[in-house]
Design a binder for these strands. Structure first.
Length: 316
DNA sequence: AATCCGTGGTA
DNA sequence: TTACCAAGGAT
């Protein structure tokens, strides 16, 4: 069943291509991806000329685990309201959590606000361009730091997200799915493919992600449309199924603490008045789980107790 | 290093 | 209907 789900629609070649993928020049992969990207890249807001480093940074926060189509409207509203880091830093974090709406993982809104404060206070209100500096900001990790440096500032760095990891796993390693993430290994693998020219490198970073998002997808990859088909080690090997460590399964959402936290936060977003314990009690039938969820939100700083048994989004 | 963290679309 | 999974990061 596993291989059935993953295996692409078109069949493997009867015999492996004469040119072994390992023998293909490294530059061939980047060349093919960049040519394809030039023809098929989606017209996304953050790819417009002059979109700005702040816009790129906000987009990357929003895109952490949330699909492109859900991000775009919120991103544009966000940037219209807070055109600079200082604009966001000037409002309470609860405003960011409220504007985040249903994008999910509301801690990201809190982290984005914290990053804006850090940029305003420590970096003159300008989004840093060095990876090492970006990494010091709240909510920015290995992916986002390099994405901002590469896409907003044109610096040459390997940018590795889940799409790129999958493309490399298949095309280079000949495996159906990537091994569990490894910072060192993943960055080295992408670095080995990266064009020397910074501009071409930035295109390749974006192109590999785009290819993984549109063609080299997790389920039902469209190999017949893939610019790397002739270079792909997974294809050449006849699409062997994944044999690595078992992927961790995401816990069921229904009935989870996540769901309860979401219900409480949705209630807090719906009003600017404090929400009382009595009102929160109506949101979920199990008091123990409800209390645990509320305690978690308080500990995370997503909720503030403004009076005994009354709660709101964080003020400061 | 494994687990936790929201929400909604899709097959 | 259920299961998968989507430009990750923090702990």
């Amino acid at each position: 069943m596993n291989a059935t789900v993953i295996a692409p629609a078109d069949s493997a070649p009867a015999s492996p291509p004469a040119a072994a993928p390992e023998g293909a020049p490294v530059g061939a992969i980047a060349n093919a991806v960049n040519s394809w990207f030039g023809l098929h890249a989606r017209d996304l807001p953050w790819r417009r000329d002059g979109f700005g480093a702040w816009g790129v940074l906000v987009s990357e926060f929003m895109l952490q685990q949330t699909p492109v189509t859900r991000v775009i409207p919120h991103l544009e509203a966000w940037l219209a309201r807070w055109p600079t880091p200082a604009d966001l830093a000037a409002v309470p974090p609860g405003e960011a959590v409220r504007a985040w709406a249903t994008l999910g993982y509301p801690r990201r809104a809190l982290w984005l606000h914290a990053a804006a404060v850090e940029i305003a206070e420590n970096h003159g209100g300008v989004v840093p361009e060095d990876v090492d500096v970006l990494l010091t900001l709240t909510g920015i990790g290995d992916y986002t730091a390099r994405a901002v440096a590469a896409f907003a500032y044109g610096h040459r760095h390997p940018v590795v997200d889940t799409n790129t990891r999958r493309v490399i796993a298949r095309c280079v390693a000949g495996q159906a799915e990537p091994a569990p993430p490894s910072r060192t290994r993943d960055l080295a693998a992408m670095d080995a493919l990266l064009p020397a020219d910074a501009s071409a490198a930035a295109v390749f970073n974006a192109g590999a992600m785009e290819l993984g998002a549109l063609v080299c997808t997790s389920a039902r990859p469209r190999c017949s449309d893939c610019p790397l088909a002739a270079l792909c080690a997974w294809r050449a090997a006849g699409y062997p199924e994944y044999r690595g460590p078992k992927k961790t399964v995401q816990k069921q959402f229904a009935g989870s603490d996540r769901q309860v936290r979401g219900l409480i936060l949705a209630e807090l977003r719906s009003t600017r008045h404090p929400v009382t314990d009595a009102e929160i009690t109506t949101l979920w039938p199990e008091p123990t789980q409800l209390a645990r969820a509320l305690a978690g939100l308080l500990a995370d700083g997503l909720v503030t107790e403004v009076a005994q048994g009354a709660y709101s989004l964080p003020h400061e």
